[in-house]
Amino acid sequence: MKAQVTVTLREGILDPQGKAVEHALKSLGFDSVSSVRVGKSIEVELNGLSPEEAGKQVDEMCRKLLSNPVTENFSVKLAEPAGE
C-alpha cells in the first residue's frame, strides 16, 4: 500500500518560494499565471495494513511529523499497488 501525502502551506501564509516561481513563470512569458504555491509531496510505503488502518496511521503521521499545523495543511491519497 502506498500513501501519497501532499503538504501545502495554509492560505494566507507567505510563500516566498511560490512567489519566486511565479515571477520566473511570468518572465518565461506565461502571462496568465496569477499565483503559485509550492508544497511537498511525500510517498509512504506501508506493509500489512488494511486501507482503513493505513489511512488512520498516515493521518496520525501527518499530524505528528509530516506537517506543521501552524503553517500547513495536508491531504492523503491511498493507492493499492497493481495486482494485489
Binding site: I13, L14, P16, Q17, K19, A20, N68, V70, T71
Partner: peptide
Amino acid sequence: GALIGNASR
C-alpha cells in the same frame, strides 16, 4: 507558533 522562510528568500 512557527518559523518559516525569510520574506526575502
